[in-house]
């Protein structure tokens, strides 16, 4: 059996898998210090070059080596996905960089958010009314999610569900339907009539969703008389 591959140590390095600190070349040390100095915000490759005033090939090589030593890591900036960002390994990207708890690899983890919303929706549907604490406890006990949600995170997701007109806020008045929820306590329930924005007189005709409506005029190049969308709509 061949011996396991060792990471490239670089010339003059005594690094052996992380137990010992590698001996860094001056250029590597400078680059590492600059990146580490930025903490959890990370640093853009172009900024590293400007700040260290080292020629590009050397910076590129230093970054390659520092990554192999596991001293730095590349991170995806949520808003600047095209930029190569580096951060010292001991830091976790700040919310401004990663996008926050709901983001993964610089993009919103929509599937995760959807699953959480669905779980909460079903729970509120079953219990008629539920407080934030009840929802938080339920989500934790399901075992579906690895992370522990904070109360603020649950409130955020509930507000998003309100915006989607899935649920609404209410206040317990002590009636039987509120169960054991204290009188006056804020809780959530499913919206009586779920959102049914199916379209209106505007969106049900081709012009309502036409991307060329701005350029359409009675005698223009695009006109209702010669409109292909109208032709398609009225071909029955």
């Amino acid at each position: 059996m061949p011996p396991p591959k060792q990471p490239f140590m670089g010339f003059g390095s005594t690094f052996n898998g992380g137990s010992k600190k590698p001996t860094l070349k001056p250029a590597e040390k400078l680059v590492y210090d600059v990146i580490k100095g930025k903490g959890d915000m990370g640093m853009w490759l172009a900024d590293i070059k400007t700040e260290t005033k080292i020629p590009q090939p050397i910076v590129t090589k230093a970054i390659k080596n520092l990554t192999q030593y596991n001293l730095i890591k590349d991170v995806v900036h949520v808003r600047l996905k095209g930029r190569k960002m580096y951060m010292a390994s001991e830091f976790e990207p700040a919310a401004e960089v990663s996008g926050g708890a709901w983001y993964s690899d610089g993009a919103l983890d929509s599937e995760f958010v959807e699953t959480l919303m669905k779980t909460i929706f079903n729970y509120i549907g079953r219990s008629n009314y539920a407080t934030v604490d009840m929802i938080k406890e339920y989500v934790k006990n399901t075992g579906i999610f690895k992370m522990d949600f904070t109360t603020k995170q649950i409130i955020d997701i509930l507000y998003s569900m309100i915006l989607e007109k899935q649920i609404e806020k209410s206040r317990s008045n002590g009636d039987v339907e509120f169960g054991s929820i204290q009188i006056g306590k804020e809780c959530y329930r499913l919206l009586n009539k779920q959102e049914t924005l199916v379209g209106n007189g505007f969106t049900s005709v081709p012009c309502g969703v036409c991307p060329s409506l701005k350029d359409c005029s009675p005698n223009g190049k695009i006109s209702p008389a010669t409109c292909v969308y109208f032709d398609k709509w009225l071909s029955f």
């Binding site: 808003r79 996008g99 993009a107 919103l108 958010v113 955020d156 998003s160 915006l163």
Partner: peptide, 8 residues
């Protein structure tokens, strides 16, 4: 953040 719409 409030709407859970990807920033980009």
């Amino acid at each position: 953040d409030m709407t859970f719409v990807d920033k980009k």
